[in-house]
């Protein structure tokens, strides 16, 4: 994070690494997230997004490095901190045999200060069939139920792993809007982390973006700064390695496509015949991953 703030970070990840069978799925990842931020974690399938989130949440033990949520080490989360978290896993764990209403009340019972009225309002808003058994819900309905369960106790930190994958466009918009209607129980700024490759959703709401590639951070920063400072340059020859050269690839027509950071790679350092373009999020994602 670039900005210095007096308030402690909502999330701190410090030199985190996780390997399965000698393959690094999370590779020396460090970043911190200020309260009130909406962080989008993007990367191709298998880039390590879910593994990173699970280490961050203390659900998976990393080989090296540490993570902390709301100032508490992830591997030793207190009940107080757990009550201030909301998490929607890629495949939500729900009780198949319960009715929707029962599942909501059951989870509610685990949280101090749970508002049944609020939960019911969310449930209506996400069009959940109250009396239906969970096992009969469609994948999209199950995902909406998991989102309601994560939002209803008014957490301070929300973590979503591919939250919208099985939602239709209307459901996705409802989900995004609901993020900004959230107020945490203690009145603190709500921090949100969303991993997704649905960039057209992310680009509406994120304040920060973290690009992950093969477990490593490729690029991390405030969304507006990235939009204003990251460019793609097309050149006839390969650009020499230097600070600010993030990614380079020779295209099929022989032209080199390089992603550069203007903060450390000023335009006048490019060859005179370079063609430079600003990128939308989707194009930046493609440029970084090809």
């Amino acid at each position: 994070m670039n900005e210095q703030s007096a308030t402690p970070a909502a999330i701190t990840v410090d030199h985190l690494s996780l390997a399965y069978g000698g393959v690094n799925v999370v590779n020396d990842v460090s970043f911190s997230v200020a309260p009130g931020s909406v962080l989008g974690i993007v990367g191709r399938n298998g880039a390590g997004k879910s593994s990173l989130l699970q280490c961050m949440l203390g659900l998976t033990v990393p080989q090296t490095g540490t993570a902390a949520l709301l100032g508490c080490p992830s591997l030793a989360l207190t009940d107080d901190v757990k009550a201030r978290l909301g998490y929607v896993a890629q495949t939500p764990e729900l009780f198949d045999w319960l009715r929707v209403r029962e599942q909501i009340s059951l989870i509610g019972g685990l949280y101090p200060g749970w508002s049944e009225a609020r939960a019911q309002a969310l449930s209506r808003r996400f069009d959940l069939p109250d009396d239906m058994r969970v096992r009969k819900l469609s994948p999209g309905e199950k995902q909406r139920l998991a989102i309601v369960l994560a939002l209803a106790h008014q957490p301070e930190l929300l973590v979503f792993d591919e939250p919208v994958a099985s939602l239709d466009p209307v459901g996705r918009r409802d989900f995004l809007r609901s993020l900004f209607e959230q107020e945490s129980r203690g009145g603190e700024a709500v921090t949100v982390v969303i991993s997704s490759h649905l960039l057209e959703d992310l680009e509406r709401v994120v304040t920060h973006l973290l690009f992950l590639e093969q477990g490593r951070i490729q690029l991390y920063g405030a969304r507006d700064e990235l939009a204003e400072q990251i460019r793609v340059a097309f050149t006839s020859a390969q650009l020499p390695a230097r600070a600010g050269l993030i990614h380079a690839k020779r295209q099929e027509d022989g032209v080199w496509q390089s992603v550069i950071d203007l903060r450390s790679y000023p335009l006048d350092a490019l060859p005179a015949n370079a063609r430079v373009q600003a990128l939308g999020l989707a194009d930046l994602f493609v440029a970084l991953n090809t």
Binding site: L199, E200, E203, R204, R223, D224, A227, E228, Q277, A278, L279, G280, L281, A282, D283
Partner: peptide, 11 residues
Amino acid sequence: VPSSPTPIYRQ
């Protein structure tokens, strides 16, 4: 246009 290279605040 959220997908534009121009940041939303700038638009």
